[in-house]
């Protein structure tokens, strides 16, 4: 392998985008209103597009001639490196928006830092993806506020979503021993910087939304090491079905 440390890093980014993109796509035709149906599938499309760029690059770093399709469709569950947050079921609209918001608030500062990466391809993907991610964060922040500071029911649903998803947020900032090498080479930023930015955005939006961070701060992790919740297998069964049933089929 050409660069295993960077491969693992890029794979995590690509898997986050792919799995969340697939989850959001499940809303297609089921959105609470037409505009939101379109918004969620648009965001899904951006994420799948970013996943294609990221997984293609992971394939290059791997050096075995794998493209994004090979990485998306032909890996097993324990080979995925996405954070647990992203494979969680959609739940209701508030839950989907909260999950997306917590992720967008993480992705935006990450891409902002990756813009300065000494690795040209990572910097290029970040440059392209950042513009889209800003749109997403704007959209989801507004929804979190509207739902939290809305009716009794929407507030309750948004708070329940936050209570449920908060336990998966620490894992977003997972950093390995090998990442420190990449950080010292200026290829990727340190996660502590990203977490500081994330906290700032999340706290200000949640305050505006009159939502409170749960006091129970027990955090789950595992996805970054390939230890997933029971939900990922079902998602992959759906995602990979065609390639597994008809190997090498093309549209």
């Amino acid at each position: 392998m050409k660069n295993e440390d960077l491969y693992n890093y890029v794979l995590r980014l690509g898997d986050d985008s792919l799995i969340l993109g697939q989850r959001l796509g499940e809303w297609c035709g089921h959105g609470p209103i037409l505009e939101e149906d379109i918004a969620m599938t648009n965001i899904s499309l951006d994420l799948i597009g970013q996943a294609m760029s990221l997984l293609d690059y992971a394939g290059v770093l791997d050096g075995q001639g794998k493209d994004h399709d090979a990485l998306a469709f032909l890996r097993f569950e324990n080979e995925y490196r996405n954070a647990l947050l992203l494979e969680q079921p959609n739940g209701d609209f508030a839950n989907t928006m909260m999950r997306q918001f917590l992720f967008d608030a993480f992705r935006k500062p990450l891409y902002e830092k990756l813009l300065e990466s000494t690795d040209m391809q990572i910097a290029a993907i970040a440059e392209k993806s950042l513009k889209e991610t800003r749109y997403h964060l704007k959209h989801t922040s507004e929804w979190v506020i509207r739902l939290g500071d809305g009716t009794d029911e929407s507030h309750q649903r948004a708070q329940t979503a936050l209570d449920l998803l908060w336990r998966y947020t620490d894992e977003l900032f997972f950093q390995t021993e090998e990442d420190t090498t990449l950080i010292s080479l200026g290829m990727v930023p340190s996660m502590s910087e990203i977490k500081a930015e994330w906290s700032k955005t999340v706290l200000s939006v949640l305050e505006e939304a009159t939502l409170v961070i749960p006091t129970n701060n027990w955090q789950f992790e595992g996805g970054r090491r390939g230890m997933h919740s029971e939900h990922l297998g079902f998602l992959l069964a759906d995602l990979q079905y065609m390639q597994r049933a008809y190997p090498n089929m093309k549209w």
Binding site: E35, E36, I38, A39, N42, I43, L45, D46, Y135, K138, H139
Partner: peptide
């Protein structure tokens, strides 16, 4: 603005 997201990725409604 009806929605930030429109008929294609590059459009709003």
């Amino acid at each position: 603005m009806v929605s930030q997201f429109g008929s294609t990725a590059c459009k709003a409604h």
